[in-house]
């Protein structure tokens, strides 16, 4: 056999290992969770109950919690991430660019447990005192702010998540922005546009990259576990306001798994939650990756 073939086949062994792991993850999720779907059917998703004694589980509250916290995170992070990307690639002098990009990359590589600790002991009290209480006191008639806030709740988790995903979304947008052909910008300036108008036009040009960044960041926010588990409150109820304490699916798993072994159906229930999280996250990420690919084809 030719040496090139032998080499290729040895590498394929590693590829097979990697693919086996990916497939194994999906299979183990399905395999460990199907008892809960057999037991409760759609009720596992649509009901709000967590009763280990009766072995009755419905994960609507953490599902809502996941959606609410990531929605808060995305709505805060999107304008900030776009601004950071423009700031780094258009506004500051080019010799400062790598510094700003390094700071942004460092933010993306900090462990989430450090965000969690900081969120719990620094961010939460500040948000509580200067944002949540005033909002509740003056705008409490709006249902969104109706519950009297504690420091840890869905809102705190959402804000902390937004801080964590900004650098991630921003770096995708930044890459697309710096890849804009120079002559396109020249053309815009030659039409007599101001710098802001050029930026606005270019943002339109890279809008799929912006959507891609937002979608991929949304996927991250939904899957994030430790930081959220530390600031979300970890209480099982249907949230009535963003100031309610709650759960997300991943924080539920982190919080409940250590005692799940004691019950017959709690482990399947947690795997079931993970399967739902995985499926939703997969769809969102596939959309995001599709958008990224579209951007790459264009440039």
């Amino acid at each position: 056999m030719k040496s090139g073939k032998i080499f290729q086949i040895s590498l394929i062994l590693f590829i097979v290992t990697t693919l086996t792991i990916v497939v194994g993850i999906v299979i183990s999720l399905i395999n460990s969770s199907y008892p809960i779907f057999l037991r409760h059917g759609f009720g596992f998703i649509s009901r709000s109950v967590w009763n280990p004694i009766e072995e009755d589980y419905g994960i609507l509250p953490p599902l809502l919690g996941t959606l609410i916290t990531s929605a808060i995170a995305i709505s805060i992070a999107t304008p900030l991430a776009i601004s950071l990307a423009i700031f780094a690639s258009e506004i500051i002098p080019s010799r400062l660019r790598s510094f700003v990009n390094n700071v942004s990359d460092l933010m993306a590589s900090l462990p989430s447990v450090i965000y969690g600790l900081w969120g719990l002991y620094v961010l939460a009290p500040i948000l509580h005192k200067y944002v949540m209480l005033p909002l509740h006191n003056y705008l409490g008639f709006i249902p969104l702010f109706s519950v009297k806030p504690t420091p840890t709740n869905l809102f705190t988790a959402g804000v902390l998540l937004s801080i964590m995903i900004i650098p991630f979304a921003s770096s995708i947008i930044r890459e697309a922005y710096t890849a804009i052909p120079y002559n396109l910008k020249e053309a815009a300036y030659s039409l007599g546009m101001t710098r802001w108008e050029v930026v606005k036009t270019m943002l339109g040009y890279i809008r799929s990259a912006i959507f891609a960044g937002v979608f991929l960041a949304l996927g991250r926010a939904m899957g994030e576990t430790m930081a959220v588990a530390m600031v979300v409150g970890n209480i099982m109820n249907i949230p009535k306001s963003i100031f309610d304490m709650g759960y997300t699916i991943s924080s539920l798993i982190a919080n409940q798994f250590p005692n799940a072994e004691a019950y017959k159906y709690m482990v399947p229930a947690l795997y079931g939650g993970a399967l739902i999280l995985f499926t939703v996250g997969l769809i969102i990420n596939l959309i995001g990756l599709h958008l990224v690919r579209r951007v790459m084809v264009k440039s």
Partner: peptide, 21 residues
Amino acid sequence: MFLQIMVEFPTIIIGLFAYSV
């Protein structure tokens, strides 16, 4: 493509897999 999706896997799911096996 699988790897790009794998990067985005919530890591707690990977923990569940390691627990299973």
